[in-house]
């Protein structure tokens, strides 16, 4: 940073030249992120417009939209895309359905001295390994030996086994804390005076919840949904472990990237575009400030 030989009366070189100091601070992180990360993304995106020679397996570096046409005209790929989107939306709705009441309980019903413990109880599973949590659901859902099968057997029911439903349950389990935490923070920020005012004006509990609280916490719900939605969209390990024969978007990318990188690259741009569209759509709600 500042390396001047003279001894100025005030501060160092950087203090007297803020622009130079800014450049010095930004140089290393920007060099890293632009060269390593943006460079890689750009190269990948470029590859999506190339093809692979069917005989030699070598890259053919001529511009073509073939891969994108393939992605959007092959019924099996379209189905996988729609299925993945459906799973991501279901997971987000389930997380809202479970997460909002739990967050409300933590912030507004539970005694204040219990709150740090409840937050810790939500945070702890976030630190538990991702793979361990998916594995845990394999042990829960396993058709013959699973906990659920054992629990449901006396009732004459079977475990749902491995498939789309088990993917949705497992992903909901994985991302639920990402929904609860921002919404909980939102609930704690609702000022009591506003609730008193609502009650003074004659609103019952439910009316206050709908007309006062929900508008305030809506951005936090959207913030949570960004995590639950985009994390579900790109996941493929969960499908491998508890999905049975069901595959998701990421599985197609993973299966193709060795033999046909251009096609895998084209397929991988779909979740990126969906996530960017979603981010653009929710920008105005102020959700991005609640991440």
């Amino acid at each position: 940073m500042a390396t001047t030989t003279a001894s100025p009366p005030k501060g160092g070189f950087g203090y007297r030249h803020p622009r130079a100091r800014l450049a010095a601070l930004l140089a290393a992180p920007m060099a890293w992120l632009v060269v390593v990360y943006l460079g890689s993304l750009a190269a990948l995106f470029l590859t999506a417009f190339w093809t692979v020679d069917g005989f030699t397996g070598a890259l053919v570096r001529t511009f073509t939209l073939e891969n994108f046409v393939d992605v959007f005209t092959t019924p099996a790929y379209l189905q996988t895309m729609l299925r993945t989107l459906g799973i991501a939306i279901s997971v987000t709705l389930l997380c809202l359905l479970i997460g909002v009441p739990v967050a409300f309980f933590m912030a507004r019903v539970a005694r204040p001295r219990w709150q740090p413990l409840l937050v810790a109880l939500i945070l702890t599973p976030l630190w538990a390994s991702y793979l361990v949590k998916v594995y845990a659901w394999r042990a829960m859902l396993s058709p013959e030996q699973g906990v659920l099968a054992w629990f449901l057997a006396p009732l004459g029911l079977d475990s749902p086994g491995f498939g789309e439903l088990s993917i949705i349950v497992t992903l909901t389990y994985l991302w639920l804390p990402y929904m609860i935490l921002p919404v909980y923070a939102g609930f704690t920020r609702v000022p009591n005076s506003m609730l008193d005012a609502s009650a003074d004006l004659g609103a019952k509990g439910w009316r206050t919840f709908r007309s006062v609280i929900v508008p305030i916490i809506f951005p936090t719900m959207v913030a949570g949904s960004i995590f639950t939605f985009s994390l579900s969209l790109g996941d493929y390990i969960t499908a491998q472990i508890v999905g049975g024969k069901v595959i998701m978007l990421g599985n197609v990318v993973q299966q193709n990237y060795v033999t046909n990188l251009p096609f895998a690259a084209a397929f991988a741009t779909i979740p990126v575009i969906i996530v960017l569209l979603y981010l653009a759509a929710v920008r105005r709600t102020g959700a991005l400030d609640n991440l």
């Binding site: 890689s40 993304l41 790109g234 979740p271 996530v275």
Partner: peptide
């Protein structure tokens, strides 16, 4: 961290 891990993964792998 915002983009799916698989996108980051194959992009870096390629480079």
């Amino acid at each position: 961290i915002a983009l799916p891990g698989i996108v980051t993964g194959i992009a870096l792998n390629n480079v």
